[in-house]
């Protein structure tokens, strides 16, 4: 399962999100990191420092692209100009797959720059799967969709979030970027059992797992460290189901030192099957 068609045959271990405050440390100290996740949009620029830094990172590390604005769940079709720029970047990074969110975020060319939750309807399944397939065909790379954390549910929903995810990825024939922290956040907001979600995800399609420490302004405002325990439990269960898949730790706000982020990411290694076997031996 480590390398599958959803990872383009690539076998990746534990990575961390590449963030600007860590540039100097990474380029200067060259720490051992299996891979970095980059936010595609930060490097879909014409020139200057962002691309210069990226090229230096690419000389040393493997990079996987993660996006925040493809909006597969938009009722409208994917933006071709956006896809063209994204494809240009994939040629530069040689990312084995591309991920973005299972959400929507723009209407009539106006962008919210948010990851808005989907109404879980059959129509949305069909449209979202169509958009993912279209992007996948255009990019000529596997796509993995990430579950988002949400604060709202729609009257029109006809199924649960995990049922929606399953239907979409099956019809689009794409991978899943399973964010266990987002599952936890949504379970708190909507009152479902997060383990039920993890158990329902199509394990064979999980391209990589993510968990992050995120400042949640609203319903989870103090869940910085307290979320970690239940999230690690979800992660352990996900690994149990999916096997050794690429794992990412993101730190989106109040970013600490590189060592702290890296150390946190390496905690995930304890859950990996081969690490457990080594410990037992």
């Amino acid at each position: 399962m480590a390398a599958s068609r959803f990872t383009n045959g690539a076998d990746y271990g534990i990575g961390i999100g590449l963030r600007i405050p860590h540039y100097q440390h990474i380029l200067g100290k060259k720490p051992v990191v299996d891979w970095f996740e980059i936010i595609s949009e930060n490097y879909m620029v014409e020139g200057g420092r962002p691309l210069h830094v990226l090229d230096q990172i690419l000389e040393q590390y493997r990079v996987v692209q993660h996006g925040v604005s493809l909006y597969f769940g938009n009722a409208e079709r994917p933006n071709r100009e956006h896809l063209k720029k994204l494809k240009t970047l994939t040629a530069r990074t040689r990312t084995p797959w591309v991920s973005d969110h299972l959400c929507w975020g723009s209407v009539d060319g106006r962008y919210t720059h948010d990851l808005l939750p989907m109404p879980y309807t059959w129509e949305a399944v069909k449209i979202t799967a169509r958009n993912i397939r279209e992007a996948q065909d255009f990019l000529e790379l596997p796509i993995a969709v990430e579950n988002v954390s949400s604060y709202a549910e729609f009257h029109v929903s006809e199924m649960s979030e995990w049922e929606f995810l399953n239907e979409v990825v099956e019809r689009a024939d794409c991978g899943v970027l399973l964010d266990v922290n987002n599952i936890y956040v949504s379970s708190c907001n909507h009152g479902f059992n997060p383990m039920k979600y993890v158990n329902a995800v199509p394990a064979e399609r999980v391209a990589h797992l993510a968990g992050h420490t995120k400042y949640e302004k609203y319903t989870l405002d103090t869940h910085d460290h307290p979320v970690l325990d239940p999230v690690w439990k979800l992660y352990a269960r996900a690994i149990e189901r999916c096997g050794r898949v690429a794992t990412l730790l993101e730190w989106d706000a109040q970013i600490p030192t590189f060592e702290e982020v890296h150390g946190e990411a390496l905690k995930a290694a304890k859950c990996l099957p081969h690490e457990k076997a080594l410990a037992a031996a």
Binding site: A75, E76, R110, D114, P119, T121, E123, I127
Partner: peptide, 29 residues
């Protein structure tokens, strides 16, 4: 996981585009 089937005789729900337009207008207000 049990396979879901779309209900055949349910009336068509509110269109996705309509829900998104309503929410986007409210969010951007």
């Amino acid at each position: 996981m049990k396979k879901l089937l779309p209900p055949p005789d349910r009336p068509a729900p509110v269109r996705l585009g309509e829900v998104q337009r309503m929410m986007a207008q409210a969010v951007m207000h």
